[in-house]
């Protein structure tokens, strides 16, 4: 062991695994089935609700509990790192959507910047339950998760996690419902404002205009890589526009259409901006 990060109690996850094993032996209805942990990260496949309802979308998620100072990555990891990846194995007729990424945090590594999550976080995923799922049976949902967890050093990890849920007419909140609520609160909402990209002397400016612009913008995260540098942008209000100015990426080749950004304000509300390099149409607004 190289570093004094034995902060997560080692005994607890082991007990959890035992508890989960007993629970599945007893076929007790549980909405969280397995937790796997090392000294830097505990991961678990969890459900928002305690059952699957035929024809509805169920929200499952990868719960990530990081040791203090350690982090995993957003869809754009920033200057180093890798985004967490999920691969599902589901019963026939079930379909998993992509990760509904909560707005990330910025981690400053001196010369490099990373985007990701620390503390306890959840990566929610919608799972479509087929309309003909048989009530009274159970569904076995399996997830292979791969991540990179870093503090100063980085450790790749992967785990196969399973969740065994009953199929029922109705479902009630599961123990981790609050984590799902928090992940929902941290979802970037579709921005109601048009955003335009301008090239300004080697920098890339995003101009956001409209009414009720965020009064206290805090940070902006580029979704696509190789467009802007990951260092914090300069944000100011100028002539009624919110102007977000980034250094251009060293690896810029083409401007994605649209270029997507997550705008975060000081009260942790966030919006997903789609910035276009042409003048936005104003006729329908």
């Amino acid at each position: 062991m190289r570093k004094p990060f034995a902060v997560l109690p080692v005994v607890l996850p082991v007990m959890r695994i035992f508890a989960a094993a007993f629970a599945s032996l007893l076929t007790v209805s549980i909405a969280h089935a397995t937790a796997v942990a090392d000294e830097h990260l505990e991961v678990e496949l969890v459900g928002a609700r305690d059952a699957l309802v035929p024809g509805q979308t169920a929200w499952l998620g990868l719960r990530l509990k990081h040791a203090p100072q350690w982090h995993t990555y957003w869809i754009n990891p920033g200057d180093s790192g890798l985004p967490t990846k999920l691969a599902w194995t589901l019963p026939a007729g079930y379909a998993a959507g992509g990760i509904a990424w909560p707005a990330p945090k910025r981690f400053d590594l001196g010369e490099l910047t990373n985007f990701g999550y620390d503390g306890e976080a959840l990566l929610p995923v919608p799972i479509k339950v087929p309309a003909d799922a048989a009530i009274g049976t159970r569904a076995h949902l399996a997830l292979e998760a791969k991540w990179l967890v870093c503090h100063e050093e980085c450790i790749p990890g992967k785990a196969t996690l399973v969740l065994d849920l009953p199929i029922a007419q109705t479902a009630a909140d599961a123990p981790y419902r609050q984590l799902f609520t928090d992940a929902y609160t941290a979802q970037p909402q579709p921005a109601p404002w048009p955003a335009q990209i301008r090239l300004a002397g080697g920098r890339i400016e995003i101009a956001v205009r409209g009414t009720d612009l965020p009064a206290a913008p805090h940070d902006v995260f580029p979704v696509q890589t190789r467009v802007v540098a990951n260092a914090p942008p300069h944000i100011e209000t100028r002539n009624g526009e919110l102007v977000i100015s980034f250094a251009k990426s060293d690896y810029f080749t083409t401007m994605p259409k649209p270029f997507d950004l997550v705008l975060l304000d000081r009260s942790a509300r966030s919006w997903l901006l789609h910035a276009d390099s042409t003048e936005p149409s104003t006729t329908h607004r």
Binding site: A48, R49, Q56, T57, W59, I75, P77, G78, D79, S80, G81, L82, P83, K85, G97, G98, I99, A100, W101, E111, L112, T113, P124, P126, F180, Y184, Q187, P188, Q189, P190, V223, Q224, T225, R226, V228, A229, N230, A231, A247, K248, S249, D250, Y251, F252, D260, V262, L272
Partner: peptide, 22 residues
């Protein structure tokens, strides 16, 4: 209960860009 969650477009992973040091 349905959560209205906007899903960001998936894209391939890539890692470094920085204008921080020339």
């Amino acid at each position: 209960m349905s959560l209205r969650i906007s899903i960001l477009a998936a894209f391939t992973a890539a890692v470094v860009s920085s204008g921080a040091f020339a």
